[in-house]
Write a protein that binds this DNA or RNA. Sequence first.
DNA 1: AATAGAAACGGACCACGGTCCGGTTATGGC
DNA 2: GCCATAACCGGACCGTGGTCCGTTTCTATT
Lengths: 197, 197
Amino acid sequence: MPISLQLADETPHERADAARNREAILAAADRLIDRLGIDQVHMDAVAAEAGVGKGTVFRRFESREGLMAAVLNRSETSWQAAVLSGPPPLGPGAPPMDRLLAFGHSRMRLNLKHAELIAAAGRAGARSYAAVSFAAMHVRVLLWELQVTGDVPMLAIALLAPLEVPILQQQVEHDQVPLERIEAAWDDLVRRVVEAP
Amino acid sequence: MPISLQLADETPHERADAARNREAILAAADRLIDRLGIDQVHMDAVAAEAGVGKGTVFRRFESREGLMAAVLNRSETSWQAAVLSGPPPLGPGAPPMDRLLAFGHSRMRLNLKHAELIAAAGRAGARSYAAVSFAAMHVRVLLWELQVTGDVPMLAIALLAPLEVPILQQQVEHDQVPLERIEAAWDDLVRRVVEAP
DNA sequence: AATAGAAACGGACCACGGTCCGGTTATGGC
DNA sequence: GCCATAACCGGACCGTGGTCCGTTTCTATT
């Protein structure tokens, strides 16, 4: 059961037209993002492409950030499924250390791939917390399986922090660090944390 | 010599009126931020308070983010001075490990104190890079003095990542973690990294 | 099937960040 | 001290995110 990021999902009784419009808006946003790139997608255009008024878009998604968070949500959900029940070493079945390293590499690449979208989603609605929370929970469980001693929740945060978008972007775009070196450095960090005296 | 974040400083020959206006704008921004809070400070208002036109503000500081970065710059500079030549343990004179821990605690509190301003400054101009770069350099030097083996520049990044504003805010505001526990966790992380086998 | 009322709709409207260009003012050479 | 020139100034203007409210559409009830 993935921690999902319900922003504007079925409340007790969502009217049929509302549901149709929500889908239309998300599909329109997807299409426009794909066609123009995120920062060229304007709310007016999304509304027009979806065939609804601008007011409708804002009522359903609150803000531009909220809409982007909802778009982001889809891929996050399928990634969470891969982590929880996909093939090893990312999914269950591999030794905890292998899973942890696979998790870091996977999250790192996903964060870079969706960097623009994640930035556009900002701290909107629950995205930030729900996604962070899922990752933190997963790392905590793996650290526990590895019998790490100490303040496990805080160590999980420390391991996740270098995977955040701005930090990765700083390294990749400004400092021109190759991805392999970032991966290796993270692996090294994990080992130091796990194998501490 | 602190790494300063010159955004709109004296180029070869800055005209006297331009310099006066720059100071007036910065002072006005300071006053308004203090009086209204950052997100209530509008560019129109800054211009009016400084007694200049809006165009002038944007020519000198490029954008709202740029202005905020320039405001932030002042306190950053004095903090950098404290790190480089202030009293120990933050400044020189204490053992490297003490300095490293003091650095972390100090940076942590400063980031939380200026969280809004740092967010408003965004990745504007050089702020992000210059500030990060200074911190990274300092940590690298201390790790080197501690004779840490491995990829020191990358380890420095890993130690700095948990001190970033969004991550601290997540813990303090959402998870209600007391600052002391965050400090202790960072100390623990540092020790694991430094004393790795 | 008719009706009442709530929920959703949509586009005119607003606010604020950012641009542009005609007018003004400082500065260096004479 | 005066002039030519470059730099600077300022406020009218624009685009886009976000709001508001009169109108329309759905659904539960009878």
